[in-house]
Amino acid sequence: MSITADTVKHVANLARLDIPADEVEGYVEQLSQILGLMDQLNSLPTDGVEPMSHAVEMLMPAREDVVVNSDARDLLLACAPDTEDGHFRVPKIIE
């Protein structure tokens, strides 16, 4: 499957990465090269193979429905680049 400049721009948009126009070609080249490596997977027949999404087969554990956290607002807001009146502050969001 071939990668084009449009693919790179589309993917960059999905990934919310600002890629300057002069870097697009570089991505086309590198991603194509890497995907070329991946295309060798296609030669392997995998019919009937169960996909594996976890390294170890286990059941999902669950926790009891208990409140354990105390208010961490100030600690967490202290990590933020911009806050106001107890909120994380961002540029105006236009719906």
Partner: peptide
């Protein structure tokens, strides 16, 4: 760029902030 870590200078809008 919202809750921690690096944020770009003068984001124009929310998408600009992200990208």
């Amino acid at each position: 760029g919202i809750r921690f870590g690096y944020r770009c200078e003068n984001p124009q809008d929310i998408k600009d902030l992200f990208t």
